[in-house]
């Protein structure tokens, strides 16, 4: 526990001391700012502008489009590609793993570090809610659920990214692998609920793993425990596998 804390602090220090964090932050805000502007414009140009309520720009931003999952899909691999691949390249993995620390605490610290940076990326987007508030009331609990959903989805993506970084030899490989696995296994899987909608059981299975459906629920304030279980399981599974991968990376030298 104590070593996890030390490692976590080191992760944050290294993340925020590197220019990479700021490049990611700026491009993240630029990207999201444009999307939010776009949604504001759409809702404002409608005959009866609905800036608040369930079809408002905040709900559109977090829920009803593909964009809400697209941002984490691109940014999460960028945040995690470094964590193990870089340590392996610079051989600091050797000093790290020969200190009296368990693999579990190393993996936890890496994940929590990346998660903190990810959460930090979203903090400035709270301003969007303040913008909306100028035009009407904001559903703060709904917004809370939307953020919770964003963090859960992002957490799952980050966990996949951490695992890929532990498996890959270089940062670029780590990024591409995480992008492919998240995009292929998590992102595309949800499509099934639209394709196989004639069989109820199959549709329900795919809807259980459908990121967009989850985000749509979260964005209007519905916290579905099935989704929470799904994402926490993905996180637990990936981090567990990372611990194993780290053990076997010792074997590989």
């Amino acid at each position: 526990m104590r070593s996890t804390w030390a490692l976590y602090k080191r992760e944050l220090l290294s993340s925020f001391c590197s220019p990479m964090a700021y490049v990611v932050l700026v491009s993240f805000l630029l990207f999201n700012g444009m999307i939010f502007y776009f949604f504001m414009k759409i809702t404002a140009s409608q005959p009866a502008p609905t800036l608040t309520g369930t079809r408002g720009p905040l709900q559109m931003f977090f829920g009803s489009t593909i964009l809400s999952v697209l941002t984490p899909l691109v940014f999460c691999p960028a945040l995690t590609m470094r964590v193990f691949a870089e340590e392996r390249r610079s051989r600091t993995l050797e000093t790290l793993l020969t200190a009296p620390v368990t693999e579990e605490s190393v993996v936890c610290a890496k994940f929590l570090g990346a998660f903190t940076v990810y959460a930090t990326l979203w903090v400035p987007t709270l301003l969007y809610a303040l913008v909306v508030r100028r035009y009407g009331p904001v559903d703060w609990t709904g917004l809370g659920a939307a953020y919770a959903g964003t963090l859960l989805v992002g957490g799952a993506f980050l966990a996949v990214g951490v695992l890929m970084s532990a498996l890959a030899r270089s940062q670029v490989t780590a990024f591409l692998l995480s992008f492919l696995v998240i995009g292929g296994a998590m992102f595309a899987l949800g499509l099934g609920s639209y394709i196989f909608n004639d069989n109820e059981a199959v549709r329900r299975f795919f809807s259980y793993v459908n990121l967009w459906e989850h985000m749509e629920h979260f964005s209007v304030g519905v916290v579905d425990s099935r989704a929470v279980v799904y994402y926490t399981s993905v996180i637990a599974l990936c981090l567990g596998l990372t611990t194993r991968a780290l053990g076997s990376s010792r074997e590989a030298g």
Partner: peptide
């Protein structure tokens, strides 16, 4: 091998805590 982005003291303090 060391972390180039840290300062010497930061690094040693981190390592001491880790140990």
């Amino acid at each position: 091998p060391l972390y180039p982005e840290l300062r010497v003291r930061e690094y040693l303090s981190f390592r001491a805590e880790l140990k």
